[in-house]
Design a protein around this nucleic acid. Structure first.
Lengths: 147, 147
DNA sequence: GCTTGACCTCAAGTTAGGTTGAGCTTGTAG
DNA sequence: CTACAAGCTCAACCTAACTTGAGGTCAAGC
């Protein structure tokens, strides 16, 4: 089993459910990698499917491509990532994800629980305060994954 | 206690931590409401602070303004929302939030658990499949809160 | 040998979510 | 009464994340 079959951009698009243009875009952003055939066409290893799956899921929970890219940089460049590699990524993300999960739970449960909390004197509100740091950051898009 | 003191846009900005321009923007998008003084200045009821707090938290977990606006439309127009009103909103969001929470947990825990799951034959991957429906939707921004 | 479909590149357009700036009005403090 | 800080409106600009389109290449099928 020397070379596991490689995928064309169209195949990856079909199997991952994202548009070809999005794959080009992710590649330009350094989220995925390909090599080229003699005629300049992209070819992807199978691990691209996992990467794309993770990109989509991460995006759905509000993680930006830049953050995903940063996380992916912890993965090995040359070889297909192993279980251990993904494990490391997972660990690196854990804190941020835990924070997000707790925010979500707060939204879900706390919307009402919080009624008596002093949102009216908002500086005490548990829904808000742990994010004061985020209050003003860069322009345009906000960072969604708390630091 | 006839009229609880009302807030100017600057006061809301300061207390909520968002820019005046963002408040204007939220108002234009129908997320918050104000009435005007004789000299055309905005005045906000106290509930605006809660609304803004919720907007910020919701955004951090990847819910779009449009979705927040839709949820807010379940709140009463005339009066200040009561505990019950917020409770309803919370309930309405619960499913979506639960889904998001489970996605996050999957990202957190499943990145590695999933290794043996068949991501290599991605159509079986639990990280991916429940979102096939989302695969292709509108242009530009994606809906982040699963349906 | 030519058409068809999949690829490629690069530039421009789109949506969401705001910010910035110009130009004008108000209200309050000295 | 005059500064000047705060407000107001509206248009322009900005980033992120893609999509669309124009223009060109390449291999396979008829």
């Amino acid at each position: 089993m020397v070379a596991v079959k490689e995928l064309t951009v169209g195949q990856v698009a079909m199997r991952s459910g994202v548009a070809v243009s999005a794959l080009h875009f992710y590649e330009a952003r350094g989220l995925i990698r390909s090599h080229r055939t003699a005629s300049n066409q992209r070819r992807y290893g199978r691990d691209v499917l996992r990467r794309v799956a993770i990109i989509r899921v991460a995006q759905q929970v509000g993680i930006s491509l830049a953050e995903i890219a940063a996380a992916f940089h912890s993965l090995p460049e040359g070889r297909t990532p192993t279980r251990e590699d993904w494990n490391l990524l997972s660990t690196a993300w854990r804190d941020g994800l835990d924070h997000k999960i707790s925010q979500l739970k707060k939204l879900r449960d706390g919307l009402t629980d919080c009624i008596g909390c002093g949102c009216m004197s908002i500086d005490k509100c548990p829904l808000r305060n742990k994010d004061d740091r985020l209050a003003r950051e860069g322009t345009g898009a906000r960072r969604l994954l708390a630091p």
